[in-house]
Structures are given as structure tokens and as C-alpha cells.
Design a protein around this nucleic acid. Structure first.
Lengths: 192, 192
DNA sequence: GTCTATACACTGATAGAC
DNA sequence: GTCTATCAGTGTATAGAC
């Protein structure tokens, strides 16, 4: 029951991140997912938009989980962020540069053209930022500084995903991982 | 003669950055540009793809010029980058968050689905990176380090554009401007 | 919950006149 | 250089049977 719905969302995630919103057809989603054709509008009465909103939400949650995992208690922020970005590099490479999460693409496509998806992207980005931020606060940085720094991390990683996908190489992401680690260390050293 | 062709490219730039590649129709481009319908395929025999490739190229060149302007001889790298990012923030705000350059959106949409546009995006990103890189080399940083740092700057700025557009606020870009300045200063201090 | 059939708008592109 | 007419294909969404 939930299985069919889930397959739709999962496939939508994959197609959206590879191609974007408008390039992905419902026909393609149905075929790729192997889920029953007729049940799409049963599970998602609002059609494509609702489907995409679910995909964005799922992707945001997955990212947040992955980040939290890499920022486990015992590790420093700089090392945790470093490893998280390396993980993304591996995933992007392994996918043949098709992957990277639907967020980036959808966010750009729908920033001013689709309120519902824009809102979904906002939430997802904030969720990601907050995971970084919380860890920074735990590390002793005051909350405003932490939020800003977390936003900076989020931006660099997003940008690096774009560069890696565009250049068909994990190098940009690995490079950003290293730089981010260096800068985060520098930041920590600043206020001891 | 070149005026019509130019108008097509200019309008394509604007529509691509607001909506992305697949969401933008040729019909829309023709109407918005006010250019004569019938001449589209005369100027661009390969149609939409060729048009988009031109838009991406133009956008890359415009960015490179803008960066170069902000990195004038007498200024430090950190201040130049800072001001450049602030300029983008103003532009993105002024456009109602519709703008930001077609590159980011097109790059994500076509990374693995359209060779020609992927190549165009690569070139544009490299062009942008190289402007930063050259300035860093002139500032005394060795060429490999400079290229890596330049890539880092490029990534952060791209990512910040996404966040600002998504959140309908210039703040993420302004924040990244400040952080980037801080980190660049830290980097310079490191090797005096 | 799932199916098929279908409506209807719109897409990018081409042909051929001017 | 520009125009109109037209093509075949695809897009999302809905209706109604099972």
C-alpha cells in the first residue's frame, strides 16, 4: 500500500535530480518506477507537483540524516564536514554524475515559478543548514555565528555539487571538502 | 542584422535563468524578445539548443567581465571578491529573485542529458574560475593553490545564488560575501 | 486501488511562399 | 531575412470501468 507510493517518490527523486522538474514526464516516472499506472493520481491527487514536493522533502531528510551521521558526537566539526562532502563526492561519481539530490535543480527551476515547490525547497535547505548549525553550537559557537557559518557550508556544498556534475569529476567536491576543513579549523582557532 | 540575433540571445538568457531550459518555450522567447518569429531558425539553425548555448556563453563572459572589474589591480582579493558577491546580491534582489545567470540552472539540467550545453557550461564555469585564479596568482599564490581556491570561490558563490533565490532574500549572498572575505584574509595571513 | 481511453494544450521543428 | 501553415510528438490531467 505504502510500497507503491514509496516507489513513485523514490523514482521521482532519481529522475528529478538527473533531469530537473520540467524535463521529467509523468509517463517516465510511471515506467521507471514499475508502479501501477493508474494509481498515480490516487496517491497524489495534485499530480506532478505533489509528487515533486514529496521527492524534495525526502531528499532534504536524507541529507539531514547523512550529515548528522557524519557529525557524530566525538568528531570535530571540520572533520565531520570534510567526510560528509567526501561521501557526496563518492555518490555523485558512482551515479555517473546523474545524482546530487533533486534540491539544487528544483530550487533553481521553481524559485519564482512554483510556490509550493519553492516552499518545499526552502524547508529542505533550512533543515540541512540547521543540522550543521546545531553541531556548531554544541562546539561552543554562539547561535547567530553558527547559523551563518552553517549557511556558508550549505552554499559551498551545493555549489560544489553543481561543479562536480558539470565537469563530470568528483574533484571539485573533494577540493571543497579540503578547503572547508581548512577554513573551519581557521575559524575555530580564531576564538579559542 | 546582428540586432535581431542579439535580442534572441538576451531574452533567452533572461528566461533561462528564471525558469530553466525545459520550462522555456521557443514561443515564449520569440514573444518576449519582440524579434521576428520567422528568423529564429535562420539565425540559429540548431534551434533551441544552439540558442541556449549562446545564452550560456554570453552569461559566462558577462560574469567574467564583472569579476575582473571588481578585482582591479589596486584592490586586495578579499575585498574584490566581497564586493563582487555584494553586486550579485543586489542584482538578484532587484530582479525579484528571477535572475542569477542561466548557468546554474542549465548546468544542473543538462549535466548528463545534453552534451553541447554541458560543454558550454563547463567552459563558462572555467572562465569564471580562471579570472579569480589569475588574480590570486598575481597576489603571489602559486598556480595550483590559486586554481583550487578559485574553484572554491566559484562554488560558494554558485551555492549562495541558489540559496538567495530560493529564500527570496539577498541575505545568503551577503553572508557568503562576508565569510568569503574573512576566509580569504585568513588564507593570505597563513603564507606571508 | 488500479486500469484504459481520451481530452486538449503545447512543444520544437520544417516546408515553402514572399 | 522573415512569414505562415502545419507536422508529429509529448505533456498533464480526467472520466469512468473494474
Amino acid at each position: 500500500m505504502a510500497a507503491t507510493k514509496d516507489r513513485f517518490i523514490e523514482t521521482t527523486c532519481e529522475l528529478l535530480e538527473a533531469q530537473g522538474y520540467h524535463a521529467t514526464g509523468l509517463k517516465e516516472i510511471v515506467e521507471e518506477s514499475g508502479a501501477p499506472r493508474g494509481s498515480l493520481y490516487y496517491h497524489f491527487p495534485d499530480g506532478k507537483e505533489e509528487l515533486a514536493a514529496n521527492a524534495v522533502r525526502r531528499s532534504g531528510e536524507a541529507y539531514a540524516r547523512s550529515i548528522a551521521k557524519n557529525l557524530k558526537e566525538d568528531r570535530s566539526i571540520s572533520e565531520g564536514v570534510h567526510d560528509f562532502v567526501l561521501n557526496i563526492a563518492d555518490r555523485v561519481e558512482a551515479s555517473g554524475y546523474r545524482s546530487g539530490g533533486p534540491l539544487t535543480a528544483i530550487a533553481m527551476e521553481t524559485a519564482t515559478t512554483n510556490q509550493r515547490l519553492n516552499k518545499a525547497c526552502r524547508k529542505a535547505f533550512n533543515q540541512i543548514r540547521d543540522v550543521f548549525s546545531e553541531k556548531l553550537v554544541k562546539g561552543g559557537i554562539d547561535s547567530k555565528q553558527a547559523e551563518e557559518l552553517a549557511q556558508f557550508i550549505t552554499a559551498s556544498v551545493e555549489g560544489a555539487i553543481i561543479l562536480s556534475r558539470t565537469h563530470h569529476s568528483g574533484e571539485p567536491l573533494r577540493l571543497i571538502a579540503a578547503r572547508l576543513r581548512f577554513f573551519l579549523k581557521a575559524f575555530q582557532r580564531r576564538k579559542p
